[in-house]
Design a protein around this nucleic acid. Structure first.
Length: 281
DNA sequence: ATGCCCATGTAACATGGA
């Protein structure tokens, strides 16, 4: 099973990119972020023609998440409030559409668009930290359910210095500050594993390049889009890839898609030979 | 140093992103 995540920066502006990429990468399950469209205007027709159905949670102009799948998802959950019914903060945070999850073949995918935070002195930064604290409570409930799960999305956090192009200048600032890194580590809690880092220890691999300052041409990027696997899925991980070529397209999103392949055989070892030749870069 | 670019909404900029 191939699971992917992509911040599209507007699905209506990027529909052609998405459809072409789906045909090339053929993911089974995709978490999308920043769809930037209310549900009634979500462009379903092209996706359905391409064999994908969409579970959506959107709003006008900002935010918005979706899950694409070839097979219908089971047990759809929208927002933190789906798992935290008595949590008033979860209710309040649900005004911004940033969380959607569903199950497929015994695997739950939780798709997130973590707030950016803007600036360390901004109210949006406190919002980001409160949001991550709520995510921790949400995951505590998820863990109690004993289901294999995959946490994907645009985290807007470079968790380690090897995840950004200029740590000397950028560490400590937004997307690389210790409080937000600590808040994300608390969510991962030693039992969620970064799929990409199972295979690639080196720096120099990015998933986001700023539109400004010629960041793409200078390869000044950050790795802020992640796929985290629970223990049972970590053992089944075959490879994880950043689909960097998508950032080089005409009128691209500022994010590249990321993906992980999970063995269908529950008893297989992680070092098993991969079963299909799709690669990038 | 600051903004650089891009999308949305609404109608020449304002807001948000990261």
């Amino acid at each position: 099973m191939r699971i992917a995540s992509w911040n599209l920066n507007s699905i209506r502006s990027r529909e052609a990119h998405l459809l072409r990429w789906l045909g090339e990468a053929k993911p089974d399950l995709v978490g999308l972020q920043e769809t930037k469209v209310e549900d009634s205007l979500f462009p379903r027709a092209g996706l359905e023609a391409a064999g994908y159905q969409a579970a959506i949670s959107g709003q006008k102009s900002y935010n918005g998440v979706a899950l694409l799948s070839r097979q219908p998802l089971e047990d759809l959950r929208i927002g933190f409030e789906a798992l935290l019914p008595g949590d008033s903060e979860a209710q309040q945070l649900g005004e911004q559409k940033r969380v959607i999850s569903g199950s497929l073949e015994g695997v739950r995918i939780i798709n997130l668009y973590v707030p950016n935070g803007s600036d360390l002195k901004s109210d949006k930064y406190s919002y980001k930290l409160a949001w991550l604290a709520c995510l921790k409570r949400y995951l505590a409930v998820q863990r109690q359910q004993g289901e294999a799960f995959c946490l994907v999305g645009d985290f807007n956090i470079a968790l380690e210095d090897r995840d950004l192009h200029n740590p000397a200048r950028l560490t400590g600032g937004i997307m690389a500050s210790e409080p937000e890194r600590q808040a994300l580590r608390a969510c991962l809690d030693d039992d969620l594993h970064d799929a990409f880092r199972l295979f690639e220890p080196d720096t120099g691999h990015w998933s986001w390049w700023d539109y400004r300052s010629g960041a793409w041409d200078r390869d000044r990027g950050w790795r802020i889009d992640h796929l985290y696997l629970s223990e049972e899925l970590q053992a089944r991980a075959l490879r994880s890839v950043i689909h960097k070529q998508e950032r080089g397209q005409e009128k691209p999103s500022d994010h590249a898609p990321v993906s992980v392949d999970i063995s269908d055989e529950v008893d297989d070892e992680a070092d098993e030979e991969a079963d299909d030749g799709f690669m990038d870069q």
